[in-house]
Amino acid sequence: MSPETAVREPESCKVEPAAGPRVIALQDIVEQVRHDSQQVPNRYLDESTVPHGGE
């Protein structure tokens, strides 16, 4: 079959490979992290301060 006669798949029929469960879980967590990191970040930094550090 020459390139000219090859049947071309219509654009609308192209299907993206489905994201695996790992990718979906990661995307979910990235979204949660994005949202949570915006919640009073300075308060979080202050609460977790360790004056003088350690060894």
Binding site: L45, D46, S48, T49, V50
Partner: peptide, 10 residues
């Protein structure tokens, strides 16, 4: 190992 004020431990 390190807080936001650069105090180090770990």
């Amino acid at each position: 190992d390190r807080d936001a004020h650069d105090n180090v431990y770990g």
